[in-house]
């Protein structure tokens, strides 16, 4: 369960404060597939960063499984991410000096998992990259890189997978492949999947949608207990 209570984000632009995200409260139940949509600059990536603890809110609190992550220090946050959150970026963000296989193994090594090797191999197989395990990111196509990133996100069997425009940098075929994988993962493992996209077609695949515009929620189809409007 992910819960945001009155979370906002404001940055300074020169001397002027600039609000990227106005206070909002949402709850994402466990196992939900949510799409966050909206035009460029609407604050959707910021929101995702806040959920992952990659960025700190200006106000409010973010709770993951009832733990307020805004109260955690960086190391505790890193540990939480390592255990519970998998992240897929638009720009893949693989470590260039490591092979595909090693990239996938990193989160497990960090967490101190014993059987990292077979599991990394298995994950690569799941994303269909067994043959390219020992290539460096620079030797892989964009689609392949993103699949590695996806395998890496799943390394520690996270309860939550956050994906920030995962297809934004890919052609249609590759994008579709990635989406298939994401859906399979969501369906097969029951992970919570939060997908940031401005592609309505992708968003349509989700169980729920959160639409942002200029830092405000304009549509929320999440099964709500409170706080948001239901359709």
């Amino acid at each position: 369960m992910i819960e945001l209570r009155d979370v906002s984000k404001t940055v300074m632009s020169g001397a002027e404060p600039l609000t990227i995200l106005h206070p909002l409260s949402i709850q994402i139940p466990h196992g939900q597939f949510v799409a966050i949509v909206g035009p460029s600059g609407s604050g959707k990536s910021t929101l995702l960063g806040l959920i992952a603890g990659l960025d700190a809110p200006s106000s409010g609190s973010v709770l993951i499984d009832d733990v307020d992550i805004t109260q955690l220090d960086e190391d505790a946050l890193a540990k939480l991410r390592g255990e519970k959150v998998g992240f897929v970026f638009q720009f893949f963000h693989l470590i260039p000096s490591l092979t595909a296989y090693e990239n996938v193994a990193v989160p497990m090594e960090i967490a101190g998992v014993a059987d990292a090797r077979p599991r990394a191999e298995q994950l690569l197989e799941e994303v269909g990259l067994t043959g390219r395990a020992h290539h460096y990111p620079s030797q892989l196509s964009g689609g392949e890189q993103q699949r590695v990133a996806l395998a890496r996100a799943l390394a520690n069997n996270p309860k939550i997978v956050l994906a920030d425009e995962p297809t934004g940098n890919l052609d249609t075929a590759n994008g579709r492949h990635i989406m298939e994988l994401l859906r399979t993962i969501h369906a097969g493992r029951g992970t919570t999947l939060v997908l940031v996209t401005h592609d309505r077609e992708l968003a349509a695949m989700a169980e729920a949608r959160l639409v942002l515009r200029d830092g405000r929620v304009v549509e929320n189809t999440l099964r709500q207990d409170q706080g948001g409007r239901s359709e």
Partner: peptide
């Protein structure tokens, strides 16, 4: 850059 990626993957400051 690498440090930041490691961080998103759960590595702590000490590591």
């Amino acid at each position: 850059y690498e440090a930041a990626v490691f961080k998103t993957l759960g590595a702590n400051t000490r590591t």
